[in-house]
């Protein structure tokens, strides 16, 4: 066990009937970081989150939260935004927040609730029923419920689900604020651009097994570089290029380790009309597709 970790998962196994959903998964989340929990649909992310939250019990392995074994009181120090649902539609917005806050052990925080509603542009809806809110507003309400009790650990499952670009930007900003205040954040999402923008470290799981784990920059460094090409003509076969995603006028060329980029540019210039040539680290989307597709 690493005592630096705010959350430490070791050798976690979870089975349903005879199906192993989580197979010996281990990882740690450092205090104050944004940790990305990634994986394709059915990889075991939701089971992982439910097990961390003690909603499901593991068949094997250990989970240590905030320097100790999971205790019922720890639930009050964790905030959770589920992917879907989680609201009483026939209840007033203010009462809904107050109820979940009381269950997390905080009461008499009406002014804080008002402050969060103002911050999320929902103040005028405080006395309306939850059913009167749009999908985006409901998502922001769920976000308030997840953070109203000032948790030490915040678990966000698809936090940008159902949000338009303006609201998405607003939630991004709030997550950064919370991180800056020292909150530890675990974010499960399929939006790789958000992970690249926000996460410090990641865990990629596939079919219940850990595939990638570590610092995001280091992981991207392990996968080498890509060339982003804007061109016209027919792309040739080039040494040092492992795979090409050809879209017609644009293409991404995945490079092998140690590939000679000058030589590749020369070969391309001879074969096609190159309008733009850019060398970048591999995107997380590409890494995700490559690892999950194996």
């Amino acid at each position: 066990m690493n005592i630096d970790y705010t959350l430490n998962v070791s050798g976690l196994v979870k089975r349903f009937d005879n199906k192993t959903v989580l197979d010996n998964v281990s990882f740690g989340v450092k205090g104050g970081e944004i940790f990305g929990l990634l994986g394709p649909n059915g990889a075991g992310k939701t089971t992982m989150i439910r097990t961390i939250l003690d909603i499901l019990k593991p068949d094997a392995g250990d989970i240590t939260v905030l320097d100790g074994k999971f205790r019922e009181e720890v639930k009050e120090k964790i905030g959770y935004l589920p992917e879907e649902g989680g609201l009483y539609r026939k209840t007033r917005v203010f009462e809904c927040i107050r109820y979940f806050a009381e269950l997390k052990g905080v009461a008499g925080i009406d002014s804080e609730i008002g402050g969060w509603l103002k911050k999320m542009n929902l103040y005028e809806y405080g006395n309306k029923n939850v059913s009167d809110l749009s999908k985006g507003m409901s998502r922001k309400l769920q976000f308030i419920i997840a953070v109203i009790h000032k948790p030490e650990i915040l678990i966000l499952d698809e936090p940008f689900y159902g949000l338009d670009p303006v609201n998405k930007l607003q939630i991004e900003g709030v997550i950064q604020e919370l991180k800056n205040s020292g909150m530890t954040i675990i974010m499960s999402t399929h939006q790789m651009d958000e992970v690249e923008k926000m996460c410090d470290r990641i865990l990629l799981i596939n079919k219940g097994r850990s595939v990638l784990y570590g610092d995001l920059g280091e992981i991207k460094g392990m996968y080498g570089f890509s060339i982003y090409l804007d061109y016209s003509g027919k792309l040739p076969r080039i040494d040092g290029v492992s795979r090409i995603n050809d879209h017609g006028n644009q293409a991404e060329l995945m490079l092998e380790k140690g590939a000679d980029t000058r030589e590749i540019l020369r070969r391309l210039a001879d074969a096609v009309d190159v309008r733009k040539f850019e060398i970048k680290t591999r995107s997380l989307t590409e890494i995700f597709i490559e690892e999950v597709g194996k």
């Binding site: 909603i55 964790i78 589920p82 649902g85 989680g86 609201l87 539609r89």
Partner: peptide, 17 residues
């Protein structure tokens, strides 16, 4: 029934047993 429909169960169980 309403709780299952609105999927509040998961959020509640993250707060209490």
């Amino acid at each position: 029934g309403e709780e299952k429909e609105s999927r509040t169960g998961e959020l509640l169980l993250s707060s209490i047993s």
